[in-house]
Design a protein around this nucleic acid. Sequence first.
DNA 1: AACGCGCCCTGTCCGC
DNA 2: TGCGGACAGGGCGCGT
Length: 278
Amino acid sequence: MPELPEVETIVRDLRRLVTGAEIRSAEVLKKDLIVGNAANFEASLRGRRLREITRRAKNILIRLDDARDLLVINLGMTGRVLVTTGTDAEPPHLGARFELIDGRRILYQDVRRFGRLELVSAEGWEKREAGLGLEPLSPEFTATVLHQLTRDSRVAIKTWLMDQHRVVGVGNIYASEALFRAGIHPARRASTLGGNDAVRLRDALLGVLEEAIEARGTTFSDYVDAGGETGGFAVQLRVYDREGEPCVRCGTPVERTVITNRSAFFCPECQPKRRGRR
DNA sequence: AACGCGCCCTGTCCGC
DNA sequence: TGCGGACAGGGCGCGT
């Protein structure tokens, strides 16, 4: 599912709703969602308080008290984290249930079960984090840095954007959207980007991610926030899932192609394959 | 080493 | 109506 704006929205919801809450009990209903032993996971979470709740890449990080452990949640394609009153009916495909002392519940729901929940030590997380790329909303993510990072990669720029080892948080929707805004063809090799391209792409990515956070994310099919509400950014998408519809800028029909097994949407007029035709 | 591909899963939609 | 295939916000492990 969820790319940076959706995970950020959920993290902000959780921060507001459950920071400081105490877990009475944790129950895993789908064991394959847990990295490591599910019984240990349940036992380790019993009686723990939830401290700082943050995001790194597309991961939700929940720091726990009385140890330096982190609960790391990656939502995969269809994962949801829902905060409910204890009396709400439970959704199908429930993967894990956390009962809080105050009577509420945190539910992890995941139809396709590509998501993962894991308890990680601070040291373990530090190691993992070393493999993750730059946060696009951080001050370090400048056009100059972006240009340098793309310089020696032969992959398509859309594939490049989605690789979490370089820049994190960008998935299939926002990769297409950012490239449209920047006027760059998604199949262009990363190494062919010039300095101006990098400036436009950096600005485009920042713009689309910030606007999407503002709108509380994009609901394509499954995404909802921690309160179960859909995101509002779908109506602002300019190319994603708009094959055949007129480009919002020039009216040319939007095209769909497949780049490394994922759909890419673009305007053939606004995003020329070769430089200098705009 | 970097990169492409298949796979993990369930649900939905579309064409025959 | 039924059925098979394609496809769906991600990420890992494999082979080249």
